[in-house]
Design a protein around this nucleic acid. Structure first.
Length: 289
DNA sequence: CATTCGTGGAA
DNA sequence: TTTCCAAGAAT
């Protein structure tokens, strides 16, 4: 079983890791949970300003739980996947009601929180509570696929298999395991990137199975290219943006202006209402109170 | 296990 | 211009 040179990795992180605000000392578990949720499928650079503004307005779960949903959706801004904002508020409510306002420490309890899945639960357990648990995100999957597996990219995700694979690489000590996960993610974000890997700058280059094999191209099935233009997803985004920018309400005419096709517009509006991102009152749509 | 769900920057 | 993809979760 090939392993990862933890010492080289940690040394690289000390030298090249980004000073992200949620990595500083004294950052609480709620603040870390918040940044992890915001970072789901969203570039970290876009998260930072929103994370700061959010915490300034709602420092903890109690404040967030008491906020109007419309304000929560607005504050989420354009991070994307706005349902995450609603789940985050539900999460705050659960933390307040069932966990005495404190972010749970067990992975199992974390997994039960709205909007918290396999990655986020372990990221919080590890980064916020210092636990030795495997943390597997897209970066880690890619780095391991290359450095250990010798493949250009990771295969289709399989939680059980991915967790077991990374768990086998985890250093035995708790603190070292935490540092390992932070550094592995950072390596994937800065060096072992999806498009143009910077192998010249990689601390794992001397032991990387993919590099040793001559960086062979990915021969597996090509992922179905996800179209976006014309999808319900785009339409939902355009429609919600109308409400976010204005006073929080819009009639059918204003909504029709951003997407003329009544069938698709209607379907998108129905789904937005079903998700709780909008409410309909007669002819007017508005952000939820 | 496969789909759906925003948004924007970079190659 | 088009394509890829970024600290995933829920269904």
């Amino acid at each position: 079983m090939t392993s990862v040179d933890t010492s080289a990795l940690l040394s690289w992180f000390d030298r090249a890791g980004r000073p992200l605000p949620w990595r500083g000392p004294g950052v609480g578990a709620w603040e870390i949970l918040l940044c992890e949720v915001m970072s789901q499928q969203t570039p970290v650079a876009r998260v930072e300003p929103v994370w700061r503004a959010w915490l300034e307005r709602w420092p903890g779960p109690a404040e967030l739980a008491a906020a109007p949903a419309a304000d929560v959706i607005r504050m989420w801004g354009k991070l994307g996947y706005p349902r995450r904002a609603l789940r985050l508020q539900e999460c705050a409510l659960v933390v307040v009601d069932r966990h005495d306002g404190e972010v749970p420490t067990d992975v199992e309890a974390l997994l039960a929180l709205p909007g918290v899945g396999d990655y986020t639960a372990r990221a919080v357990a590890c980064f916020a509570h210092g636990q030795r648990v495997p943390v597997v995100d897209t970066n880690v999957r890619r780095v391991v696929a290359r450095a250990v597996g010798g493949a250009a990219k990771a295969g289709p995700p399989s939680t059980r298999r991915d967790l077991a694979e990374v768990d086998a690489l985890l250093p035995s000590g708790r603190e070292r395991a935490v540092a390992f996960s932070v550094a592995l993610m950072e390596l994937g974000a800065l060096v072992c990137t999806a498009r143009v890997p910077r192998c010249d700058d990689c601390p794992l280059a001397s032991s990387c199975a993919w590099l040793a094999a001559g960086r062979p191209e990915w021969d597996g099935p090509r992922r179905r290219t996800q179209t976006f233009a014309g999808t319900d997803r785009q339409v939902r985004g355009l429609l919600l943006d109308v409400l976010r920018d204005g006073d929080g309400t819009a009639d059918r005419d204003r909504l029709a202006a951003v997407w003329p096709d009544p069938v698709q517009r209607g379907r998108a509006l129905d789904s937005l209402v079903a998700d709780g991102l909008m409410v309909r009152t007669g002819d007017v749509y508005s952000l939820p109170g």
